[in-house]
Design a protein around this nucleic acid. Structure first.
Length: 584
RNA sequence: GCGCCCGUAGCUCAGCCGGAUAGAGCACAGGAUUCCUAAUCCUGGGGUCGCAGGUUCGAAUCCUGCCGGGCGCGCCA
């Protein structure tokens, strides 16, 4: 339960009551009204801009209106003080009992604390990774992979029905090159001299086992056969093998998709033709010639009539080609089919997670979704900017030969999945970031994962200490929910409780914005509050979590500690990370 | 040339669909440890929020134009 929603209701009701009483006009629009914690805690617990937003339509001065609303609010229960401040803010100071109830509710819920029905069970499709099945995942895929997976978890937590999807680009020319590369390895496995892998094919070592498998299965059947004999079969086999490899890499990172959609199947099923016919029937397709891009004309540019989608009618900058010169579909054409397929499967809300190099593709895809869904589908594209891999501040060379980090798997093996998963989200997705191999595994408060885990470890340490001091006391969550938490009145204690109480709101806000990194910052901030309270107990022994002479107070503080634990576990759960009980 | 992203303290970055004196970490200076993990905590200095306009009760946040950096720009995916 997001506590700020409760006060939003109370404030809106006050406004309605004033309207009913004739003090304000009827039917005021409250959609721009905000109810949130003020930036400065000295201003109170809850702040609203109601008076400033409604002043104009009510034809009143903001502060006068604020005072009118404030008078109503003063009659509400569990509000200790109502102040009008600044240009017309109304600040509420809540009774301590409100916060105590929040803590009680949090530990009562345990790991499900923060779960929300905010999304109302609406279906959301999150498509991420979608790397070409031409080799193992590399470092450049790491950020989008983690981002998509954690965003999906976040949306689930916020009450959406989420499907994790991977679009397999198994139809274009690249998978033909892949098949030819595998064929060379097949010949190699049978003792033929293949020399250097030609330009345009895939030279990676990972295709050697594929070649051997093909040799084992087929013998010399294709050794001197023409391409038409083997291409399709080797392509299918190799793509499947690559997808198996990619799934293993993803599993090592803790990532599992629900649906893998094949581009080839979309094409073969006629979905792309259908998209074309539909768009054509609605007049969104024509044959025309595009202008060459200014400033960077390709060397082999020649004007050529193409089959174009009128993307400009839906907000794009230029119209986009649907067919290649050989008559086959462009990637864009089949990706439209992909999104139509998703839309038809019930996903009006779609999210795609792409790398920065695909940013120029966003508008056309959104235009297409608009066109094929009649405006009923919404596509949000989250672009993950580049990650620069460093080690002690020095850039790590990504050469394929040097044995340095090239693959996602190597990164995961080096620093562990938890660190990759958390650290990739310590920055907004649309800003570039550095990932420093040595810094991310070091302890210290500048390492967010470590700092949050340290708070978790301290929670468990206190828990162990309390159990040793009061061995006969029931400290189960249900017992602690009945602890006398009203005796937690120190400012630092209340601050921590308020942070715990703010967790559901943080989930909803992060989910609405499609910004999982906010969860990382929330956890870091709460860990800081906890570490501060810990140290206060060192300076003032009466604030220690375990007080030998006061069993009741100790239980109340155990409840607080379990509240912190609950939020950390709940939050790390979104990242797919287990909280630690000890630092070793 | 065009599009997208970024520009906030010396450095790395937050800033919640506009809100009240702009926040953290690192670095720097000082301080807290017979006491639940000091890998922590506290105090301090340090900012024309790239620049210039605009929108309004109010702008780091929204709009426009510049400047600087990154990514991308027909028949690749």
């Amino acid at each position: 339960m997001n506590i700020f929603n409760r006060y939003r209701n109370i404030i809106e009701k006050s406004v309605k009551d004033l309207s009913a009483a004739g003090a304000l006009p009827a039917g005021l629009d409250v959609s721009r009204l905000t109810v949130e914690p003020p930036r400065d805690p000295a201003h109170g617990d809850v702040s609203t801009n109601a008076a400033m937003v409604l002043a104009k339509p009510a034809a009143m001065k903001p502060r006068e209106l604020a005072e009118l609303i404030a008078q109503r609010l003063r009659e509400a229960e569990e509000i200790d003080a109502v102040e009008v401040a600044g240009p017309g803010f109304i600040n509420l100071r809540l009774a301590e009992s409100v916060w105590h109830q929040c803590l009680e509710a949090a530990i009562g819920l345990g790991s499900s604390y923060g779960d929300s029905d905010h999304g109302g069970g609406r279906q959301v499709n999150v498509e991420y990774v979608s790397a070409n099945p031409t080799g193992p995942l590399h470092i450049g895929h790491a950020r989008g992979t983690v981002f998509g997976d954690v965003l999906a978890s976040l949306l689930e937590k916020a009450g959406y029905a989420v499907t994790r999807e991977y679009y397999v680009n198994d139809a274009g020319a690249q998978v033909d090159s892949l098949a030819r590369s595998a064929y060379l390895r097949y010949r190699e496995a049978l003792g033929r001299e293949i020399g250097e892998i030609p330009e345009g094919l895939y030279p990676g070592e990972y295709l050697k086992p594929i070649g051997r498998e093909l040799a084992d299965m087929k013998g010399d059947k294709w050794l001197d056969a023409p391409e038409t004999d083997w291409l399709a079969e080797i392509r299918t086999f190799t793509v499947e093998s690559m997808m198996a490899l990619i799934r293993e890499d993803l599993a090592a990172l803790g990532v599992h998709h629900d649906v893998f959609t094949s581009e080839r199947e979309l094409v073969e099923s006629g979905m792309v033709d259908e998209v074309f016919k539909t768009l054509d029937a609605e007049g969104h397709i024509y044959t025309g010639t595009l202008e060459p891009p200014k400033g960077k004309t390709p060397e082999d540019w020649e004007p050529r009539p193409q089959t174009l989608f009128r993307a400009t009618e839906f907000g794009d900058d230029v119209d986009r080609p649907l067919k290649k010169s050989d008559g086959s579909w462009t990637y864009f054409a089949s990706d439209i089919a992909n999104h139509l397929d998703k839309f038809r499967r019930g996903f009006a809300d779609m999210i795609d997670v792409w790398g920065a190099d695909h940013a120029g593709y966003v508008k056309r895809m959104q235009a297409a979704v608009n066109a094929i869904s009649g405006g009923d589908g919404a596509l949000d594209v989250k672009i993950c900017q580049l990650v620069r891999l460093t080690d002690r501040g020095q850039p790590v060379k990504m050469s394929k030969r040097g044995g340095s980090f090239v693959t996602l798997r190597e990164l995961v093996d080096e620093v562990g999945p938890d660190i990759v998963r958390f650290h990739m989200l310590t920055r907004t997705n649309d800003a570039q970031m550095d990932f420093d191999l040595s810094a991310v595994v070091e302890g210290g408060k500048d390492n967010p994962v470590w700092y949050v885990q340290y708070a978790s470890a301290r929670c468990h340490s206190v828990r162990r200490m309390a159990a040793a001091t009061f061995p006969n006391h029931d400290m189960s969550l249900s017992a602690l929910a009945r602890a006398p938490i009203s005796c937690l009145t120190d400012e630092a204690e209340l601050g921590l409780i308020k942070s715990i109480a703010g967790w559901p709101r943080a989930i909803e806000a992060a989910a609405d914005a499609h910004e999982p990194h906010r969860i990382a910052f929330f956890l870091y901030d709460m860990a800081a509050l906890f570490h501060t309270l810990w140290t206060k107990g060192k300076e003032d022994p009466s604030l220690k979590f375990v007080i030998e002479e006061d069993e009741e107070l100790t239980m109340a503080r155990q409840a607080l500690v379990r509240g912190v634990e609950t939020v950390i576990a709940s939050g790390l759960g979104i990242f797919g990370i287990e909280p630690v009980e000890e630092m070793r």
